[in-house]
Amino acid sequence: MDLSDIRREYTRGGLRRNDLPTSPVPLFRKWLDQAIDAKLTDPTAMTVATVDKEGQPFQRIVLLKHFDDDGFIFYTNLGSRKALHLADNAKISLHFPWHGIERQVHVTGIAEKLSAFEVMKYFSSRPKESQIAAWASKQSSRLTARQALEGKYMELKQKFSQGEVPVPTFWGGYRVKLTSVEFWQGGEHRLHDRFLFSQSEDDNSSWDIERLAP
């Protein structure tokens, strides 16, 4: 089959200006709840895009762990490629591809490191196996074989078999302070609905809203 022949109609409904709140977070919350209710696979999964020193973009899938009016939160190894990129360029892009309900959300913002307290609070809530895995993996570094990773994990599992697993000094998280949020709703005949919330230049607490052509 020719890839150019693969297409489908989007028929689940539209998005109108009167449907929009004055800020993006309430609509994102509503859409995420609907994605969860629709039993989509990994509804909190988002593509995280960063840029290296040479301007080369990189993308990877990360899970959203919290959001509110202050921003969107995710966690990672602070020695990972994404963290090294953010140390030089804190601008970041997030993308939620909710194909099953014919929606997408695209976010741009500035990534700020979370406090030690916030990191500790979340780390302590993780399953013990995930806590140990954070210690075992030097994220984005080269591995000679999978057995090396598994061996390190088993070694640490034995080490931490009694008591709590401490938070690694090289593990943390980021809060993405929003600068723009775009909501995309699929429409019939490729007449999709797109609305862009952009932070007002005059008032950081208010948002400008524009309809974009599909």
Rank of each mutant, 00 (worst) to 15 (best):
Asp2Cys: 09
Asp2Gly: 09
Leu3Phe: 15
Asp5Pro: 00
Arg7Pro: 05
Arg7Ile: 08
Arg8Leu: 08
Arg8Gln: 15
Arg8Gly: 09
Tyr10Thr: 03
Gly14Trp: 08
Gly14Thr: 13
Arg16Cys: 11
Arg16Asn: 14
Asn18Gln: 14
Asp19Met: 11
Leu20Glu: 13
Leu20Met: 04
Leu20Val: 05
Pro21Arg: 10
Pro24Ser: 09
Val25Met: 15
Leu27Thr: 00
Phe28Asn: 00
Asp33Met: 11
Ile36Ser: 00
Thr41Tyr: 12
Thr41Asn: 12
Pro43Lys: 02
Thr44Leu: 10
Ala45His: 04
Ala49Met: 13
Thr50Glu: 01
Thr50Asn: 01
Val51Leu: 00
Lys53Ser: 13
Phe58Gln: 01
Val62Leu: 07
Leu63Trp: 06
Lys65Leu: 04
His66Tyr: 10
Phe67Ala: 00
Asp69Arg: 09
Gly71Phe: 06
Ile73Gly: 02
Ile73Phe: 04
Phe74Asp: 09
Phe74Asn: 06
Thr76Trp: 06
Gly79Asp: 06
Ser80Pro: 01
Leu86Asn: 02
Ala87Asn: 10
Ala87His: 00
Asp88Val: 03
Asn89Gln: 13
Asn89Ile: 05
Ala90Cys: 04
Lys91Trp: 07
Ile92Phe: 05
Ser93Lys: 00
His95Trp: 12
Phe96Thr: 02
Pro97Met: 02
Trp98Gln: 03
His99Ile: 04
Gly100Val: 00
Gln104Ala: 08
His106Gly: 08
Thr108Cys: 12
Ala111Asp: 05
Lys113Ser: 04
Lys113Glu: 12
Leu114Val: 03
Ser115Glu: 03
Ala116Pro: 06
Phe117Asn: 07
Glu118Phe: 04
Val119Gln: 01
Val119Thr: 10
Met120Cys: 11
Tyr122Gly: 01
Tyr122Thr: 00
Phe123Ala: 00
Ser125Cys: 07
Arg126Cys: 01
Arg126Trp: 11
Pro127Thr: 02
Pro127Asp: 14
Pro127Phe: 15
Glu129Gln: 09
Glu129Phe: 08
Gln131Leu: 02
Ile132Asn: 05
Ala133Gly: 06
Ala133Asn: 09
Trp135Ala: 02
Ala136Gly: 10
Ser140Ala: 10
Ser141Trp: 05
Leu143Gly: 07
Thr144Glu: 15
Arg146His: 12
Arg146Ile: 08
Gln147Ser: 15
Ala148His: 15
Leu149Ser: 14
Gly151Val: 04
Tyr153Ser: 09
Met154Phe: 14
Glu155Gly: 00
Leu156Ser: 12
Lys157Phe: 11
Gln158Thr: 14
Gln158Ile: 14
Lys159Ala: 14
Ser161Glu: 13
Val165Arg: 03
Val165Asn: 01
Pro166Thr: 02
Val167Leu: 00
Pro168His: 02
Phe170Leu: 10
Gly173Pro: 12
Val176Ile: 15
Ser180Trp: 07
Ser180Pro: 04
Val181Lys: 04
Phe183Gly: 07
Phe183Glu: 11
Phe183Tyr: 10
Gln185Arg: 11
Gly186Asp: 13
Gly186His: 05
Gly187Gln: 06
Glu188Asn: 11
His189Ile: 02
His189Met: 07
His192Ile: 05
Asp193Glu: 14
Asp193Arg: 09
Arg194Trp: 12
Arg194Ile: 06
Phe195Gly: 00
Leu196Glu: 10
Phe197Glu: 09
Ser200Gln: 05
Glu201Trp: 02
Asn204Ile: 07
Ser205Lys: 14
Ile209Met: 12
Ala213Met: 08
Ala213Ser: 15
